[in-house]
Structures are given as structure tokens and as C-alpha cells.
Design a protein around this nucleic acid. Structure first.
Lengths: 204, 204
DNA sequence: GCTATCATGTTTACACTGCTAACATTAAAT
DNA sequence: ATTTAATGTTAGCAGTGTAAACATGATAGC
């Protein structure tokens, strides 16, 4: 028999939302379907999420936690350029393998991160991780470190976006534009590529 | 007196959609409100756009045409690294000044470009423009040119995305994450920055 | 000029959405 | 034990994308 109170609804909704969001994209996610999935009335989720955007923010928060983990480097050992390349590769892999969640994290679905403290915290933490790695690579000023950090982030963020839009040639798949083999860019050149860009950036 | 047939509905809908999309973001755009705006019945737009995605595709097509124009370099004169930096800066300026349209062009609102020939054509044309510029910079193989092209595109695309999310410090505005002054990155360093990255990329 | 055709418009309707207000139940605090 | 606050339900509003059936009028062939 089912009790009137669910007991763990908020977490279940978040988990379910993460799953559905990644499977179908956040636009296909509805509060009502989510409620139905959890065997609860249409409006029950509103006891835990003020608006749909609040739910989005929760999913995005989970996303940043996962991204942060994927890009984490053991803090003790010395950081090398190779480590940063690895971070970049891991970032891109995350973005491509969790494309729908990534959209939610970096799109406009959640307007202002500052309105969602947990989201802001998890996003900042991801940034702080990368910043720390750069700070352990060379003794630069805070501005230079931030600059390098934004540059690497932009590079990998851009690659995630473009690689998803670029047309695949010599494959069943055809979508987007630009007659280049995504496979060849990713598999063959990605690491070299990041290395090259980073070399130009940190010049040593 | 108003005639039964509008006469120029399709173009008017597209123009109106472009305007509203850029003003409020494509998620706020509804076919019904668009129809009302043009003084026509709710379902009239369906005579010109099979689905809402088809309308999105039209708006995105216009966007790519504008982006292509913004990144165009006179084909006759010799291309230098400086020209490519300029292209990159213009690209970023477009992305930041037309942020909502840019979302539509590079987000997931339009799933498969191949389903919309005009969109595919305009996107490919934008790519082809940039490719041509690179081909006039050095005599590289097609693969190398494509590789460089994707790299620059990724870089500027990434910057558009990240600069929009990064938190502005020392300003009224606060949104996103990362304690860095967007203003300083953009205004002070953007050109230098692109130059540095391009130097690492084309190594000459 | 007359008529058939077809592009383009309207009306109506359905299923779905986010969200609010009023009410019900039960866990937790006094 | 009683009050209170958290968490659930029901009913309903306004808005959405889209399909089906029908209306109008521009145009092409006779």
C-alpha cells in the first residue's frame, strides 16, 4: 500500500529529470510527465521546485558536479601541460557524451545562475578546479591564470559545440555543416590539437 | 479594408520571427502570437511552415546569412593573419550582439540541418567563406585547412558561449560563474588573444 | 468570359503544457 | 495532545503545437 507522502520525492524527481533530460533533451521534459513517472499528482513537484527553471537548475547542478569530477586532477602531484591536455580531452568527452545535459548547463534554459546558489557553487567549483590546475603549472598573476583558464575553457567548449554541428563524412550520419570528418578530428588530432593550442597559450 | 489573402505572409512571418526571436529568445516565440502579430488566424502560418522547427530553420538561415556577411573578407586581396583575427573578432561580436539568434543557429532547436536545404546551404556558405580565407593564407592540404578552420571556429564559438556565462565583476551585472572581468578579456585582450592562438595554429 | 484547380486563408477541436488556488493529509514541534 | 508546517491532491486557467474540415479567391485552360 502507498502512503500519502512520498518521502523522497525531491531527489527522485531530480534523478528522473536527469535521466529523461539526457535521453530526450530538456525541451521534452515536462513537470507533469515527471510527476506521472514518480506516481504522484501533477502539481506535487511544485512543493519542491518553485518553477520549471528551478528544476532545470537542479539538473544543471548535477551536470556540473559530474563535469567537475571528469576534469579533476589529483591536487598533490605536480601539474604538467600534458595534464591540462588531459583535462581538455575529458571535458570534451563529457560534453559529447552528455550532450543534452551539457545544453542545459550552458544554454539559456537557466537564465541567471546567481538565483540558484547550489548551481552557482557547482559551476564555480568546476571553474576553480581548472584555475587551480593552471596555477600549479606556472607562477603567473591571477589575471594571467584567469585568462589562460578562460582560453582553455573556451577552446574545449567551442569544440563540443562545433563538433556536434559539423557534418560527418564517410559515415551513416549526416547533420550540420562543414565537409570534415569529425572522427578524424577527434580520434586522430584532438590531443595534438589541444597540445598545440596550449603551447601557444602558455609558451613554454 | 482587408483582403482575405495576405499576399506576403511568409516573409512577414519570418521577419517578425527574427525580430521577436532576437528580442525575447526563441523559446518565447509562438506560432500563435506570431500569427496575431501579423493580423492573421492562428493556423495560417501552417500554410508556410510545416512545423515550428521549420520556422526556426528560417530564422536560423537568416542568422547564418548575417553571420556570413559579418565574417566576409574581400576575396581579391591577399589574406594575412591579421585578417583572420579580424574575422574572429567579427564573429564574436556577432555572437554577442545577436545572442538569441545565435542560440537558435547553434543550439538544438533545429535538429538536423540536412532537413532544411536553405539552412544547410547558408551554414555551409559561412563555413566555406572561412575555409577560403584560410586557403589564401598558406598553401596547405585540404585536411590541414579544414583543421585550422574548425579550430578557429571552435575558438570563437567557445568564446561567445563562455563570455556569456562568465560572471562580470566590477559591474552591475552578475550572472554565471568564474570571477573574471569579461570586459577586460574582451576589450583589452581579445584581439591579442586570437592572434596568439592563431600564431600557435598556423605557426608562421 | 467561365469554370476548375489549387494556394492560401479560417474555424474548430484535441491533447498537452506551466502554474495557481483551495483543500487534504500527515509528520514534527510545542 | 494539540498546533503547525510540510507535503500531498483536485480543479481550473491561459497558453501552446498541430490536425481536420471548410472558405475564399487568384490563376490557368477551355
Amino acid at each position: 500500500m502507498k502512503s500519502y507522502h512520498h518521502g523522497n520525492l525531491k531527489q527522485e524527481l531530480i534523478d528522473c529529470a536527469c535521466k529523461l533530460c539526457e535521453r530526450d533533451g530538456y525541451t521534452k521534459l515536462s513537470i507533469r510527465s515527471l510527476a506521472k513517472e514518480s506516481g504522484v499528482s501533477q502539481t506535487a513537484p511544485y512543493r519542491h521546485f518553485e518553477t520549471k527553471e528551478t528544476l532545470y537548475a537542479s539538473v544543471a547542478t548535477e551536470g556540473f558536479k559530474k563535469l567537475s569530477k571528469a576534469c579533476h586532477i589529483d591536487a598533490d602531484k605536480k601539474i604538467t601541460k600534458k595534464d591540462l591536455v588531459k583535462i581538455g580531452c575529458n571535458y570534451i568527452e563529457f560534453g559529447l557524451k552528455n550532450a543534452n545535459t551539457y545544453d542545459l548547463m550552458f544554454g539559456t534554459a537557466v537564465g541567471n545562475f546567481a538565483e540558484y546558489p547550489e548551481l552557482l557553487e557547482s559551476a564555480n567549483s568546476t571553474y576553480e578546479n581548472m584555475r587551480l590546475s593552471f596555477s600549479k603549472l606556472a607562477s603567473d598573476s591571477d589575471e594571467v591564470i584567469a585568462f589562460k583558464c578562460i582560453t582553455l575553457w573556451s577552446m574545449v567548449h567551442g569544440l563540443v559545440g562545433i563538433l556536434r554541428k559539423v557534418q560527418v563524412v564517410g559515415d551513416d550520419f549526416e547533420e550540420g555543416f562543414g565537409p570534415i570528418s569529425t572522427a578524424s578530428v577527434i580520434a586522430t588530432n584532438l590531443e595534438d590539437h589541444l597540445d598545440k593550442v596550449l603551447t601557444g597559450l602558455i609558451q613554454n
